[in-house]
Nucleic acid binder design. Structure first.
Lengths: 160, 160, 160, 160
DNA sequence: TTTT
DNA sequence: TTTT
């Protein structure tokens, strides 16, 4: 073994988490998190901004936590690792998708935050928070890539 | 030169920032940030928690930002480096203090957060955000933060 | 602006760097770095390993440093940020590629390392080291690395 | 629980590891790792360098690994968390020591490296490398501070 | 494609 | 001294 493969993201969810259940009953959550950076263009003097979207996947307990407490707009700290999956498009061509496999999930801003806000809970108030996955989270879980749903409802009312 | 010396802290301020001005007129801010971790004691089965306090210092523009926008309870992301300073107590004995010299400061939770909350400002409502200092902090200069454009164009060019 | 987008990679180059020059004369370097993780399969008890390849791009001075000193097998520490670029394949279909835009490059293993090894240089033996780019890389400038003084004064002022 | 408390260090050991055994038989390793940064003084134009020493503690299996494979001069990647311990000096005064509790240890430079080099092993060639500790490594292990051995043999023949 |  |  060799190497360090670490990603740290702080940003806001662009949508509610997508939760699936694997054949063995374990949960998988996909979230899409935006980070943006801005700078002043040296040539034009204009202010510019670029937004980067990160596709993050959590498994098992963390997937459940994500499904229960995260919502579109929620601010999160995520620590994970890069993983590039190979798949084939309808033409049989090799395609690659890079995503972040989450190891640490921490919700930010507090549950009273008006900024994105977390899921309303009727259930017993659990103490979510940082939940760390062991080093290799799920030995064989390589979910087949699926058609990504269009993020067409993305622009309506993002609270930040 | 050799090495990487990096600290990443996400936590809440235990007090308002302490702001000083150096002889040359530059600002210095000290903040104290708590992180805590909890676990279940293997022997007693009890829930335990330990809180760690981090002393963080910012210089110049970042110090001003800290003074303007941070308050007791504010949640922050800080990236910096460890620095151990040597000093002498009243007995002339050598003493050492380790603190974090901040390079990146990002406020969390949004400006509407009820959770800690940021300073009320009479001045134009700036969206402070990440401000990065170059490698060696004391001799560092940063462009003054400008009002950030709203993220109203959130919907373009999403790759998935 | 909002968010943190940070990647930390420690691994070995799978090939010599690819160096290009942009129309404005600035250098661009692409390197491919492997990280791998291994674990024991819970079901079969077998040892398994997965290798992840990271495509990393450096600009300007750092690109030149990469071109001069890195070679296939070189071990590096890289800090950067994720960037997904959109492009179109020969069928006019949208495609996305995620790469790491490097901000910090540190060579590991020392110049005497037999492990991968760095480029033979006819030029004065520089001790390249960490070179950090400011926040937005493309418009970045870095002071040229200078010969580093040997760490011969290693013994002073150790606080413990 | 709340917060992130993370330290990442890449540097070289100033001494061989100090290995102790706890009453329960578990190993504890203390290592001292240097990072340095250099910059050009804006006023004098002189090249300056500052070295920072990090006190890092590993427990259990990682402590054993450190004891077996690390030596003065070894280059390591360490990930851990800050921990400030309170103790009392001979005058009964409160004193504080900040150290890094290691969670991840990765040796750098390869075992063939001439740069520091790792311990000769007659024993079965174990696969050291990254070893991660679970989130809370040892619920109650707060080793009492002890008199630190002077690092007086520090300057003799450091190979970098 | 690297490294262990 | 914070927060959950």
């Amino acid at each position: 073994m060799a190497g360090i493969n670490k990603v740290i993201i702080v940003g806001n969810l662009g949508n509610d988490p997508e939760i699936r259940t694997m054949p063995n009953g374990e949960a998988v959550a996909n979230i899409s998190v935006a980070t943006s950076e801005s700078w002043t263009d040296k040539n034009t003097g204009e202010r510019r901004e670029i937004t980067e979207w990160h596709r993050i996947v959590f498994y098992r307990r963390q997937a459940e936590v994500a499904g229960e407490y995260l919502r579109k707009g929620s601010q999160v700290y995520v620590e994970g690792r890069l993983r590039t999956r190979k798949w084939q498009d309808q033409n049989g061509q090799d395609r690659y998708t890079t995503e972040i496999q989450g190891d640490v999930l921490q919700m930010l801003g507090g549950r009273n935050s008006t900024q994105g806000g977390y899921a309303p809970q009727g259930a017993p108030q659990q103490q979510y928070t940082q939940s760390s996955a062991p080093s290799r989270p799920a030995p064989a879980e390589k979910p087949a890539p699926k058609a990504e749903p269009a993020m067409d409802d993305f622009d309506d009312d993002i609270p930040f």
